[in-house]
Amino acid sequence: MNIFRLAGDMTHLFSVLVLLLKIYATKSCSGISLKTQELYALVFLTRYLDLFTDFISVYNSVMKVVFISSSVAIVWCMRYHPLTRRTYDKDLDTFRHYILVGVSIILALLFHDRFTFREVFWAFSIYLEAVAILPQLVLLQRSGNVDNLTGQYVFFLGAYRAFYILNWIYRYFTENHYSRWISWLAGFVQTALYADFFYYYFVSWKNNAKLQLPA
């Protein structure tokens, strides 16, 4: 565990906490894309298949459980919770996310480390995670105004993979650890998708103004 990896995990954890806080405190999930949340639930459920077969550390297992349970809880709040499900901007959240699932399945079947059940699902989760933010970004762009907590949620979620890239670079030089090229490529795509958002986030932060995305 190095400082970059820890920073990545913490920003990831923080993004989830900010999102749960937003839904709990404001009793609203407006501005949040259910499509993106469903994709994340699918990402964690398929990536952490090793939760019961490989023990790495208590930290590792706890984080896996946190990411699986929080993503499922958020989907539940948006779909079924009597108070919050009505605040979901259904009409703005029209991204055809099943296309992302389909493309990720095809990519995982073609490009993987080994043709085993677990490795194909792992590759699928990496590809899907790289693009899972797209419905959320489209929803924000459509609604224009972004509330503070939602803006912070997306910011921390984007920062997490950027820290992971630094962690892979660090591990490459210090441990001679060779992260799989699948993670490198998907990690870069994932971080690049946030470039626009990061730009407007920093501009609004510098000007101490409300975050607004151009139409």
Partner: peptide, 10 residues
């Protein structure tokens, strides 16, 4: 053949 390496990252 080497065994499947566990994924140590999240």
């Amino acid at each position: 053949e080497e065994n499947e390496k566990p994924h140590d990252e999240l």
